[in-house]
């Protein structure tokens, strides 16, 4: 389970990665963050960010927005989880 959720749905590259980096700023090593994104570039670029910044890409899974998730209800995207080092 992630400590922090970064909702970057609807944002285009490079904004999801920038949101992630902003959220990660000041967090301790070992903290986990999950980025929700609808941009196909984000599922590629978040792991690349981890590699370039020495963090760990924990995993990527498809994310289906459930009922009650506002405007995103029924929309598909990705949830990418990272662990800070």
């Amino acid at each position: 389970m992630s400590d922090t959720l970064v909702d970057a749905r609807g944002l285009r590259c490079p904004l999801p990665v920038i949101r992630l980096a902003t959220a990660a700023k000041g967090l301790p090593a070992g903290a986990e963050l999950t980025v929700l994104s609808t941009d196909p570039a984000a599922k590629l670029d978040v792991p690349a960010w981890c590699r370039m910044r020495g963090h760990e890409h924990v995993g990527t899974r498809e994310h289906h927005a459930e009922a009650g998730d506002g405007a995103w209800e029924g929309r598909d995207g990705w949830a990418v989880t990272v662990r800070l080092n």
Binding site: C13, P14, V17, A41, L44, D45, P47, W49
Partner: peptide
């Protein structure tokens, strides 16, 4: 979609 070449390589696409 970003370049399928960059995507297949796993490098930063933006």
């Amino acid at each position: 979609e970003p370049s399928h070449v960059l995507a297949a390589m796993g490098v930063l696409t933006h």
